[in-house]
Design a protein around this nucleic acid. Sequence first.
RNA 1: GUGGACGUAGCUCAGCUGGUAGAGCUCCUGGUUGUGGUCCAGGCGGUCGCCGGUUCGAAUCCGGUCGUCCACCCCA
Length: 411
Amino acid sequence: MAGEFQAPRGTADLLPENEEAHRFVVGTFRKVTGRAGFRSIETPAFEDTALFQRGVGDSTDIVRKEMFTFEDKGGRSLTLRPEGTAPICRAWIEHGMNKLPQPVKLAYEGSFFRHERPQAGRYRQFHQVGIEVIGSGSPLADAEAICLLDAFLAELEVPDLELHLGSLGSPEARQEYLTELTSYLASRESELSEEVRDRVGSNPLRAFDSDDEGTSRVMEEAPLLLDRLDGEDREHFERVRELLDAAGVGYTVDPTLVRGLDYYGRTVFAFTCDRLGAQSEIGGGGRYDGLIARLGGPDTPAIGWAAGVERILLALDREAVAPELDLFLAWTEDSVAGRIPGLASELREKGISVGFDLAERNLKGQLKQADRAGARWTAILAADDSVELKEMETGDQRAADLTDLASIVAD
RNA sequence: GUGGACGUAGCUCAGCUGGUAGAGCUCCUGGUUGUGGUCCAGGCGGUCGCCGGUUCGAAUCCGGUCGUCCACCCCA
């Protein structure tokens, strides 16, 4: 509060304690996806605005009101990426990845930007990790993707998870269904709550989530998209369910699962955790078979997901990690200080983490620094080359030889 | 974009009905001319978010504004 400047609304500094927790999540992601044969990809932080307009969909909230859009000096409209899938599809097309063995399995991590009012688990700049499996329409790809998200969250030990699974069918089936649902809602309009009535036009599916009593009664008899799936879509969904059952991944079929991006079709899924507050979704995704073609590439099926790093951390409620150091070098006379940096480098080359005081403190101050740096050992060097090695936790101290430091500290 | 709560030292907070700021923790120094984590003493640190109004006088009342948090919408 003291300074003139503050991090912009909805952004946050990742202080060392948080930075480490953050790295832990991303590191786990890399481990889990790496051993599944995924390779990393990194795309720019901003793209042509039109990529998102077409890829994510003009009618979505993201495009309508949540994008950070600006013009560069050449008058091009650019947008800070609000999500990762459209950029990766763009890269896939641009670099002719259809010539690679299919499917192409990609993993990414990074910052994303959405201009929304911040609240618990929602920020204007946030971090996601995610994967895309591009080039296979098989339910095996769906199952693999979902199992991987499950494995990732399990490895992190995220508690109280629930997997919601649904299918949106083909775009045509979905459109037909929405028309049917809208007219059904219209036929019983008088029984619906006011809010729901207002929203029928924009998002009739939301009516399923209402806790209004009259609305709930109406929705119990409402037609379900899952019941309207045609043959192939239905088979696909059944097959995905079989594969998940066989893999021992538990889920709830959620006929009302909605995704905020236009490109989804067939399988959609989301992991939720109720200790997050209003933003309970930790990660989710789905199949987007039409997207690559829509962006000008060859007709290519694909599926992927993204998970929010901040939300995972919120669910984990991980304790801050204290700093740790193998050895702290202290000295008794200023004449010894000159030898310290070189000695530290030597020991560090042997793989030992070494620190020393950088503020010209007296011995007492140096010991205090050692303590705060989380040092397990402190070596006190005297002008006559004698060394006292102190074990910080117990306070035990003994004479040691300079050449033995590395081996003693290493165990 | 809408609604609610809040905004005093780096952090957590106190400061009743107005008389121009305080605690604990942290940090620095000393008690210990070569020894940390306990203890004791001292010190650094605040335009009381900002602007305006009421008043002899405002951290305290009023208005506005900015910001934070939470919720709605929607989503990671």
